[in-house]
Amino acid sequence: MDVTREDVLRCATLAHLSLCEDEVEPMRLAMAQMLTHAASLDELLLDGVEPMPAGLGRPLPRREDEPRDAFTQAQALANAPDQDRGLFVVPKVL
């Protein structure tokens, strides 16, 4: 399957990756190789086959949306690269 340089850069943007220039072509080639190989699935007759998103094919259970013990604010911030007055500090968004 054809994967273009633009495809790689579009996916990199979506995935928050700022690839170096010399990373782009090897990534393009690897993606093309894998997706070409994966074309084998086109041989399968899949009409009417249910997808299996979870291990063992069981539906994922849901729990009640109830409050429960979780991290304290201090625990949540313990690994923060930057913090101030109980908040994660990040660079400007806009």
Binding site: L41, P51, M52, P53
Partner: peptide, 8 residues
């Protein structure tokens, strides 16, 4: 497609 192949 892969999810369905997984079923098979």
């Amino acid at each position: 497609k892969a999810l369905k192949a997984r079923t098979l």
